[in-house]
Design a protein around this nucleic acid. Sequence first.
DNA 1: GCATGTGAATAGATTCACAGCG
DNA 2: CGCTGTGAATCTATTCACATGC
Lengths: 221, 221
Amino acid sequence: MTPVSGDPITEERRLPDAAVGRLPVYLRALTALQASGTETVSSDQLADLAGVNAAKVRKDLSHLGSYGTRGVGYAVEQLQFQIARALGLSGDLPVAIVGLGNLGRALAGYRGFAPRGFRVVALFDNDPTLVGEQVGDLLVRHAGDLEQVCADEKVAIGVVTVPVAAAQQATDRLVVAGVRSILNFAGTVVSVPESVSMRQVDLASELQILSYHQQRIATTG
Amino acid sequence: MTPVSGDPITEERRLPDAAVGRLPVYLRALTALQASGTETVSSDQLADLAGVNAAKVRKDLSHLGSYGTRGVGYAVEQLQFQIARALGLSGDLPVAIVGLGNLGRALAGYRGFAPRGFRVVALFDNDPTLVGEQVGDLLVRHAGDLEQVCADEKVAIGVVTVPVAAAQQATDRLVVAGVRSILNFAGTVVSVPESVSMRQVDLASELQILSYHQQRIATTG
DNA sequence: GCATGTGAATAGATTCACAGCG
DNA sequence: CGCTGTGAATCTATTCACATGC
């Protein structure tokens, strides 16, 4: 059911989750291609750069619309633009980091966010001895100010890097502050309302998954 | 009860990838249950704790063998043991971190690895001004010593936290050193031989995926 | 009775293979 | 001719629903 064939740019399809997960990888590759002055790219080349196969690239991109040229490939800049649009990457999205331990500090200083569309605009911690400290070019704010600051700064995404025991509370505060996207590094399950999306990155789990594969090879030849 | 055919403990099934990805979550939940003195757990309870549904828990666990009791549930300690075994978590697996920027340092000091079966045993960097520096209770070694040190320390897993431009080289060095499992934080595709497993964690990609969902909700009600 | 374990049903993702078009 | 875009086929994962057995 197309919502009326009106404004073609508003045509919103629903992308398969698996495809959404790969779009950032394609986008990275396209940015590198653009930097090197390449104007067009085939699904084969892009597949190589992204570490997947060509059929997958074509299927994934076909969900965005028909932006390739048969016999030629995809125009790098156009595709870049379309993927960025599909991902909602309009300008800099404001990010807040909650929890300024080792990991929070590392992320606060991470140079890789800006070129990919994000800007860290606020840092929070519970610990009064950290509040007021300067980290990069931001001051650490008290978690109590979270609601106010997130509203002022129009924070779109919250990154939770607090210890396990504080993760649910930190998340709840972000939700109350109206933040609808949360990236959680705490190794624990956190619940959020339906209306909020959350992704979890658990470093120890990643290592355990690797451990499985290693052991598997070791015991089965 | 007892698996009949052949050595019971060597009975190796192949677990579906999706199940492998969830075992660490179950294991975390079981550890918490054990700490609180709980002796048995039903698939329903475990599902709650893991943030998935009960059918999935039962199907996943059934791949390990039949360790539940009908009408009762699973014995927490036994299940913990079986999952740890399936994941190959025997004692402490030695981990090396390559790249001591912000993120590498954060991981070097991360307290969450030890309780989940890993021990950071070596730190490497290319930068001579960092070599010899003490980080936590380890000294930073030069990347040139990687092969020697990884062999001495029997490193099982390498964590790559170098800048994008150095990621392939750092990975190659680990591979040459015989490390067969690699966790890569650099936002770039890295190739490894068939025999090596690699997992990639790209923080900016995670944020971009969140951005997609947020924008989707915003534009479609 | 109650919760596991599992076949069967469904949904989703990947791959194939080729028609269609520049 | 070469490469995209896509139906069809395959493979994988999830969910259902219930027989099974403590």
